[in-house]
Write a protein that binds this DNA or RNA. Sequence first.
DNA 1: AGATTAATGTTATAATATAACATTAATCCG
DNA 2: CGGATTAATGTTATATTATAACATTAATCT
Lengths: 170, 170
Amino acid sequence: MTTYAKPSQQSSGHNHSECVSEALITAEHLCFERGVQLTPIRHKVLELIWESHKAVKAYELLDRLKPLQQAAKPATIYRALDFLIEQGLIHRVESLNAFVGCHCSGHQHEQLLLICKHCQEVEERSAKEVMLALSDEIKQAGFIVHSKAIEIHGVCSTCQKMPGVPGDRE
Amino acid sequence: MTTYAKPSQQSSGHNHSECVSEALITAEHLCFERGVQLTPIRHKVLELIWESHKAVKAYELLDRLKPLQQAAKPATIYRALDFLIEQGLIHRVESLNAFVGCHCSGHQHEQLLLICKHCQEVEERSAKEVMLALSDEIKQAGFIVHSKAIEIHGVCSTCQKMPGVPGDRE
DNA sequence: AGATTAATGTTATAATATAACATTAATCCG
DNA sequence: CGGATTAATGTTATATTATAACATTAATCT
Ligand SMILES: [Zn+2]
Ligand SMILES: [Zn+2]
Ligand SMILES: [Zn+2]
Ligand SMILES: [Zn+2]
């Protein structure tokens, strides 16, 4: 039995289908305004990433795309991912070699990712104070920033409440 | 003493051979105190990582280790790396799939890495203010931390001064 | 010495990612 | 419109990064 068909809808108790359709509509909008093409493949990949709030792997996406796109190959996925990242529609989670939908779908914004090792969900936070302190630190170092990755691994508040899921390392 | 490769000694103008021998002595000390074995292979891999302040790839290390360790295979390197990371003697740079020597060689400390795309050198900073703000943000999110990765890509102050190396994206 | 654990050797393969070139589709411009 | 140009996708091959599984050797313990 395929288990990835219906990913957990638990995500902090919100209505995820609304959450997804919002993300897709926003993406369509942004791409239109920017005069870039959210082609069917790119759109589908974005939709697949948004199936849950978990970080998803490139080859997992490939497996899911294949039934819908006969010709799908690694390059198909990686090109779509490149595009989506460029447009700020998804984030690459460096510490997982995986990808996650971006909530604040604009261009090139700061990001703090809270990654749960229990449920694999990724929460994105703007973390203004952190970013401020960070800018300061970087300025002090005389460094010119191109991109930032702030990735925190641990156990999310939801999973902490579940029985048999201690917050400490196993 | 082996001295092939001759990696760039530029690193912020410091005496890097002293820098390395210090790191190695500290490592030997720590391992002894902890009752863990800094075996010849592990020691050599650590030394190879410390050849420069650049992040170095696993298979690059493998290539450099082979002449000295006939039997070296991927597993040889990855096991040594696992050990060194566990002991807090090196950091894994998630966004590069690479490894870099740790200055503040203790156990499991916070880290902010400034990664230069021009010279590939990685500067580690304790960034107290950032870490404080970060702890706060994480607490607010009700998240339990296991590990943090803060990786900033850009151009270091040294490279900014060099001709033909603009700070902006190429 | 014999048992136990830790480290390394060895072979194979999994998982992630890109290069290079061919083909098709979209857009531009006269 | 029709040819030129650019953008997107198809296709094949391969590079890069990482782990699994089991055998052997070395270190440590009693
Ligand atoms: Zn949602
Ligand atoms: Zn969770
Ligand atoms: Zn140095
Ligand atoms: Zn530099």
